[in-house]
């Protein structure tokens, strides 16, 4: 809540690559001279459960976490998670949602249905909603795993941070040399989607 501090939250399913996306983002923000604090979830929650990372940046940041109603930009790597965490956004906040659907256990076993009207329900909130199919972009690039970096590219653009630093070099420092090229492309593809 300290003035000028921006709050970003990433949500998805364990194994989707949230930690890497969040770490690349914070590396870029630090390079640009911001104070950054972020919070990750480890342990039991990672076993296919809902996973959240929060990141705040500004001149001086104290808290690594954000409560409901105070997030500026929410990125969800999965649709159901968008619905689960939309109330974390501020009024007029931005939601970037990946079109991917991953059924959770009650859905897998047929106890409940995967909600069909997620986009419609989200459109009723006082927020700016962007949806992209990051998995499809990643597939086009021949590596499904770079879906997180596609979203990162879109997120950086939406947050107005694209000119902040040389993002390709930040990405390069965060991934293994063999995967640099595909991650550069993924980042650029994501930025071009929004």
């Amino acid at each position: 809540m300290a003035q000028g501090t921006k709050r970003i939250m990433l949500a998805g399913v364990g194994g989707q690559g949230i930690l890497l996306a969040s770490r690349i983002l914070s590396a870029g923000l630090i390079k640009a001279g911001y104070d950054v604090k972020s919070s990750e979830v480890h342990g039991m929650a990672q076993r296919g459960g809902s996973v959240v990372t929060q990141l705040s940046y500004g001149e001086k940041v104290y808290s690594p976490i954000v409560g409901a109603g105070a997030v500026d930009l929410l990125i969800t790597l999965e649709k159901l998670e968008a619905l689960r965490y939309v109330h974390f956004l501020k009024r007029n906040g931005t939601l970037l949602m990946n079109e991917r659907e991953i059924p959770s256990l009650p859905i897998l076993t047929g106890a409940v249905d995967y909600p069909k009207d997620i986009k419609e329900r989200l459109s009723k909130y006082p927020i700016s909603l962007y949806t992209i199919d990051a998995d499809q972009e990643a597939e086009k690039l021949g590596n499904l795993r770079v879906m997180n970096v596609v979203l990162l590219g879109a997120m950086v653009k939406l947050a107005g941070l694209d000119d902040l630093v040389d993002w390709p070099s930040v990405v390069a420092e965060s991934v293994k040399p063999a995967y640099r090229e595909v991650n550069f492309k993924a980042f650029a593809a994501g930025a071009a989607l929004v």
Binding site: V13, G48, G49, S50, A68, G69, A70, L80, E81, L83, R84, V86, H87, L89, K90, R91, N92, G93, S104, L105, P106, I107, V112, Y114, P115, R121, Y125, P126, I127
Partner: peptide, 14 residues
């Protein structure tokens, strides 16, 4: 000034 006062209802748990 939250976008919503409450979490969205009926979201299947994960």
């Amino acid at each position: 000034d939250p976008a919503a006062k409450e979490p969205a209802p009926d979201v299947p748990v994960r």
